[in-house]
């Protein structure tokens, strides 16, 4: 999907102010603090409301004019509770598959498959209201997967989950994006879960895209070197400081600021001169937090 100059106003509030980004294959994070415009973006992808400016293309179509055809191929897991509690999980998933256009027999079989996939095979005939929060999240995920979407939209899918359930949900999302070949947009305000789960990220702040791209590209913005040594870290740091480098030491790890190439040569020469064993010399990469902070938005 591709968005260009998206503008969306809610009364006097500007939710999106010219956001442009692309979502490719794999798992893409939509990262931003609350009110950054993430849910508005999902609503525009689903064609639930037209943009006030700019264009958006999803699966080669404009969701504002071809909404039904687009939504037929999308799976959506909303942030909030969205399941009737007195309906059995299998009945619900099958019904939502039919609503997405699957013939009845196919929907029945795929509802079971999807519930097994999310780890609820044994529980599939239980009413949703008797399930835990984590299980209900999984039912929503199964309902979004069963009709075989081309693109899966997840809005804060780990909200309300305990740490173990959260780990399992993120592993499942990772698996969906890699093994099943379904592209995923993961909307989250949790930087760490986007960093661990996604192949690419779009960072939103105040309705604008402040950074986007693959995780590798975003992380490549770091500078300097990370050096791990067998011992004598302070000795090596002293020598490098003498040579004009800014160095910080943390146990057996040194972080050398400055240009990577020149720094690497200096580290090699200094370590040889001091007879200090080097375990690792590597260009320092930025964390997503660095990118987020550099983009001018407070870290969540």
């Amino acid at each position: 999907m591709r968005a260009t100059g998206l503008v969306k106003l809610w009364g006097a509030t500007t939710a999106l102010a010219g956001a442009s980004f692309e979502v490719g294959s794999g798992v893409t994070g939509l990262l931003g603090s609350n009110g950054a415009g993430k849910t508005t973006v999902l609503g525009l992808i689903l064609g639930l409301h037209p943009p006030d400016g700019g264009t958006i293309e999803v699966l080669g179509l404009d969701p504002a004019t071809a909404g039904a055809r687009v939504r037929e191929r999308l799976g959506y897991v909303p942030e909030h509770e969205a399941l009737a509690p007195d309906v059995r999980a299998h009945d619900l998933v099958r019904h939502l598959s039919e609503v997405h256009g699957l013939p009845s027999r196919e929907a029945t079989a795929r509802a079971s498959d999807a519930l097994w996939l999310v780890g609820l095979g044994e529980e599939r005939h239980r009413p949703v209201g008797t399930m835990s929060t984590g299980q209900r999240q999984r039912v929503k995920l199964a309902a979004a997967l069963a009709h075989d979407p081309a693109l899966l939209l997840l809005d804060e899918p780990t909200n309300g989950l305990d740490p173990m359930q959260r780990e399992e949900m993120l592993a499942l999302i990772r698996r969906i994006g890699s093994e099943l070949g379904i592209d995923v947009v993961l909307s989250s305000h949790l930087l760490e879960e986007v960093e661990r789960t996604c192949d690419a990220t779009v960072i939103l702040a105040a309705g604008q895209v402040v950074a986007s791209g693959s995780m590798d590209a975003l992380r490549s913005g770091g500078s300097g070197l990370v050096v791990d040594v067998d011992g004598g870290a302070e000795l090596l740091a002293g020598r490098l400081r003498t040579d004009g480098f800014a160095v910080s030491v943390d146990g057996l790890r040194l972080v050398v600021e400055g240009a990577a190439d020149a720094g690497a040569d200096a580290v090699r020469d200094a370590a040889a001169a001091q007879r200090i064993g080097l375990r690792r010399v590597q260009a320092r990469t930025a964390t997503l937090e660095d990118v987020f902070l550099a983009a001018g938005d407070g870290a969540p």
Binding site: A68, E98, H100, G101, L102, D113, A114, D148
Partner: peptide
């Protein structure tokens, strides 16, 4: 273990959705 399979069969569109929701 049939696992998760992709689906490339027919989709019944809005009519199928209306029919399913009405029945449900």
């Amino acid at each position: 273990d049939r696992g998760y399979r992709r689906y490339d069969g027919p989709r019944l569109g809005v009519r199928g959705a209306v029919r399913s929701l009405a029945w449900h």
